[in-house]
Design a protein around this nucleic acid. Structure first.
Lengths: 131, 131, 131, 131
DNA sequence: GTGGTCTAGACCACC
DNA sequence: GTGGTCTAGACCACG
């Protein structure tokens, strides 16, 4: 279970951790009951500050994605897969929405916008096929 | 020529200025040769600090959107409309792309994604119709 | 006798006036005894502020390039051609010098630098031939 | 890694910082991945205001010469050496060009100009030898 | 009047 | 500790 951290990205590191953790859960790599790496271990493995990992884990606990198992560590909760998948969808929906709004604000009409989206859809499909 | 600044937005004020200025140029409200409001005037009108306006204007100069007319102020450059429109389209394209990538990464298949985008397109069209 | 002013240039307008005036003298378009345009006339013709013209003329007087002829205006001095040509040469020499220093500071060796200069010399010769 | 700031120079302080930083990168004193001094540290060391350093660093980021490493500071980018060296060469080329144009405009013929350049080349070589 | 630069010091998020 | 942003106010050259 490796996380890839990009220190140069504009996303805070703790959010990168949260997102990747959620992604792993949403795609069933981590399933309810699985223990996530300890703060210290993850910090060492990803070469980041333990307090940063701590913050990510704290927030994941706040969102009921993981929870403490006394003496054993932090485990994926039963409801986590559902939560993660829902959030993921909602996040994407929000961003699609936002981009559409901006596009409209910029004066693109429906035809242009639809075409642009179609284009990118096709491109991304091609890339996926290649990889 | 009024700008509306939202102090609570997460976008820095100087970026709000830059965006709105570019938008005004892209939509031909400001055309090449027009003078933009002076640093002091815009600062007063928008109730923000002149240094903040200065920063926005400085960056717009770096991007060749406006340029100094000695003793007169800052004027929209001949290439500005083109630059602004291109940038805007490119920005939207990048964001569409990014959203699609994330959507794919999170395991949505083409059908789901296409449907989601279609839904939002329709919704945003309805909203536009209302307003 | 027309001057061409570039408001967007980084050179102050009064310096643009001074340079062009000196150039006209150095190349014998204006000869000793000729009257230069009045402040008002030049300001109108070049669409610039009279005080700017005034400043340029004042400095040209300080450098003994022009001098007052009571009741007639400002005239090119007898020594002006000499002064202008000397200054021009000196200015070019200084700038050549400066560029060479920077080039050296940048780590270019003699061969590279010599070649670069040769290239530009040839290019500028070609351009001259075209025009 | 010390920078030397000349408060009396006509070059703005933030540009002095930018130039020296680029020079250090172009000459491989700073290599990709190296952290540049922190804003506060450089400000203290050079006895200038942090905001001024900030401005220089901001622009270097805009030019992709350095980039943020969250929580660690600002690091030289992989492409920086290339960018810096190219820019430097281009800057020198532009200035050589400009000087030649002016020289021609002022009526120097090829022989005179060539001789002048040759003279200065020799002089600068001698100076270099002395130091 | 214009913009350009700089100082001094504040607050913030992040690590 | 790091950088990012903003405020408030100063001085300058230029027109």
């Amino acid at each position: 279970m490796l996380l890839r951290i990009d220190e140069a990205a504009d996303l805070p590191i703790y959010e990168q951790i949260m997102r990747q953790m959620k992604f792993l859960i949403a795609s069933d790599v981590l399933t309810p009951g699985d223990l996530v790496p300890s703060v210290r271990e993850l910090a060492k493995q990803a070469a980041i500050n333990p307090t940063t990992v701590q913050r990510a884990y704290q927030r994941l606990q706040d969102e009921a994605v993981i929870c403490r198992r006394r003496g054993r560590g932090l485990a994926v909760t039963p409801e986590a897969p559902d939560v993660c998948r829902t959030q993921r969808l909602e996040m994407i929906r929000r961003r699609v929405r936002q981009v559409l709004e901006e596009a409209r604000a910029s004066g693109l009409d429906d035809a242009e916008l639809g075409e642009l989206v179609q284009n990118e859809l096709v491109k991304s499909k091609q890339e996926e096929a290649q990889s």
